[in-house]
């Protein structure tokens, strides 16, 4: 039974938009889970269950490592002065905030991804309409999120988005090295989740100490 390419694209686009907009201390894990869920149908359609398994494993690893990093950050004594959710600088008040610029970026990414999808063949597969669209869209959104980042958490979400999108592209290119390549590219996402979780754990412990002292 054939699967509708627009349906696959829609799943990827929705996932990428969620990853683009999500904020907060669990942003990386949420972005990874949504992206893995959104791109897994594309991967499963073209390389079968193992493709979906790679992305599913990546999502599970990201959630576990984010939690482990948070726990480690709270327990271990090494001090980090960096809170990943606090903007590294305070821009002047503007009409459009960071989410507005991300939404604009997500809209701009549509024609870019569309062009890539229809013009750039990948691996041994010839150009097929819509094949690369969700992947190119997720990657472009990741880069735009990187370019408009204000916090370390934003940078980590962007790295995770780029890693998962590239991992799915490796799955689609087929050949002997597609699975190892996909796993290698996807590793960036759990590592970003771990790092963000670690920094969150450190800063939440420090915040707790400050409250205790003030009390």
């Amino acid at each position: 039974m054939g699967v509708s390419a627009p349906l696959l694209s829609a799943a990827g686009v929705i996932a990428a938009v969620v990853a683009m907009m999500v904020d907060g201390r669990r942003a990386v894990a949420i972005a990874v889970v949504f992206l893995a869920a959104g791109l897994a149908p594309t991967a499963a359609t073209f390389v079968g269950a193992p493709g979906a398994l790679v992305l599913g494993g990546c999502a599970v690893a990201a959630v576990l490592l984010a939690w482990a990093g948070w726990l480690g950050g709270r327990v271990l004594p090494w001090l980090s002065r960096l809170d990943p959710t606090i903007p590294a600088f305070a821009p002047a008040d503007r009409l459009f905030g960071p989410r507005s610029s991300r939404a604009f970026g997500a809209a701009v990414a549509l024609p870019v991804a569309s062009w890539v999808s229809f013009n750039v063949p990948i691996g041994q597969i010839a150009t097929v309409g819509g094949l690369l669209f969700p992947i190119a869209y997720a990657w472009t959104c990741g880069v735009i999120r990187l370019l408009v980042a204000r916090t370390v958490e934003d940078l980590a979400v962007a790295v995770a988005m780029v890693g998962i999108a590239t991992g799915t592209a490796w799955l689609l290119r087929s050949g002997n090295d597609s699975f190892p390549g996909a796993v290698l590219a996807c590793v960036a996402a759990p590592l970003a989740a771990f790092l963000a979780g670690w920094l969150n754990g450190r800063s939440s412990r420090r915040a707790g100490r400050v409250i205790d002292v003030e009390a």
Partner: peptide
């Protein structure tokens, strides 16, 4: 932060080239 944004975009571009 700009170092993260721009140099990060550079490495993202290199990663994106790899499947092709």
């Amino acid at each position: 932060l700009a170092a993260g944004r721009v140099a990060g975009t550079g490495t993202a571009a290199l990663i994106a080239a790899s499947p092709f």
